[in-house]
Simulated scan of single mutants.
Amino acid sequence: MRTEGDTWDIVSSVGMTALGVAAARAIETKRPDALVHDEYAAPFVVASGDSDMKRLITDPTLWTQIPFTSGFIGYRSKFFDDFFLSAATAGVPQAVILAAGLDVRAYRLDWPKGEVVYEIDQPKVLEFKRQVLTESGAASRSDRRAVAVDLRDDWPAALVEAGFDPTSPTAWSAEGLLPYLPGAAQDALFTRIDQLSAPGSTVAAETIDSSVDIGRITEQESQYLKDTPFGKVDLASLFYTDERTDPDELLTALGWTTSSLYIQELAERYNRPLAPVPEPLAQMFDCTRYLTAFKPS
């Protein structure tokens, strides 16, 4: 179970979920109708040394046992890719990827010249990422700045110390993050984002409807996945299920304008049908929203 101040590397706790998502991006990249291409996803999985995750990228048949066969990670990754590129094209000069994990948008996307991309995550995760990218000879397409800090701590101070300019508009992302934060930390996250955001800033976040019992769903999911390569990732023990404010409501109260899409709507937007997902996994997909918010002048 999670504890206050717990930490992790890429093959433990929350870090293992980031590795699993990298494996899913590696498989997405191989699809003939791929929505994203991530040439570094597979090298991350191989470098981790985790045998189960390595099997996922060498034996595609294993994906028939798990929900990512629906292409869920493709839809999600494409949504956040489009979000960042749209903001950058509109003149937003800096981006902040919260809980960046093994995200490599600083390397993958065609950023405008001078775009600054901040990646916030646990120190051990960012160090692993640095090592693999260095060994791969990767070159960032942006002014990438890694910020090693826990999002439950004073991350705004660390972000500003890394050069972040709170007087300039910012594009923020919270992808695959919120359930891993205590309710108070989630509420504080969006309050801090508002405080650090100049007019013209925008936020994209993956959220879960407050009407669902996420604890019960994750327990069911853990049982469903126990005999798959994801069996070692017990989501029920990693997610926080305490009370929190819906990010849409919180940001709206702070003066932001918001809109949301569900996974089915992303499938329609990207013209790739959503494959059937078995229960209880379908419940999590059905209640997941993709929120976009804009801070007007």
Rank of each mutant, 00 (worst) to 15 (best):
A47F: 05
T29E: 06
A146L: 13
V132Q: 06
F83C: 05
D103G: 02
E135N: 12
R141Q: 15
F80S: 01
F83R: 02
R130L: 11
K30P: 09
V149F: 12
S140A: 15
A99E: 02
T29S: 14
G114H: 11
V45G: 14
E127I: 07
E115S: 13
F44W: 00
Q65L: 15
T69E: 05
G137Q: 02
R130E: 15
S140M: 03
D81M: 14
R76K: 06
Y118T: 01
L98W: 12
I66V: 11
S142F: 02
K54D: 00
D81H: 15
R31T: 02
D150E: 09
F79Y: 12
S136I: 10
D150S: 14
A148M: 03
R130F: 11
E119A: 01
E127W: 04
R108H: 10
K54I: 09
I120S: 00
Q94P: 08
L62K: 01
P32H: 04
F128A: 07
A22D: 12
M53N: 08
G91R: 03
K54E: 09
A34T: 02
I57N: 06
W155I: 13
K54N: 07
G91I: 04
L19A: 05
L19K: 02
D150G: 07
K124Q: 15
P43I: 02
I57V: 14
I120E: 02
V104L: 09
L35I: 07
T134L: 10
P112V: 01
Y75D: 05
L19P: 03
P156L: 01
D143L: 10
A90M: 10
V125Y: 00
G114M: 06
A87G: 10
K124M: 15
Q94W: 10
A24G: 15
G20H: 04
T89W: 08
R152V: 13
W155V: 09
T89E: 14
L62C: 01
D38W: 00
D154L: 03
P60M: 07
S48W: 15
I73V: 13
D103A: 05
P43Y: 02
L109Q: 12
L126C: 06
W63L: 08
D110M: 13
L109T: 12
V149W: 11
A99L: 02
L98F: 14
A148Y: 06
D150H: 11
A146N: 12
K124H: 14
T64M: 09
A41P: 00
L126W: 09
G91L: 01
R76P: 00
L102T: 04
G20A: 15
E39Y: 00
R76H: 02
V36A: 10
A24P: 03
P112T: 01
E119F: 05
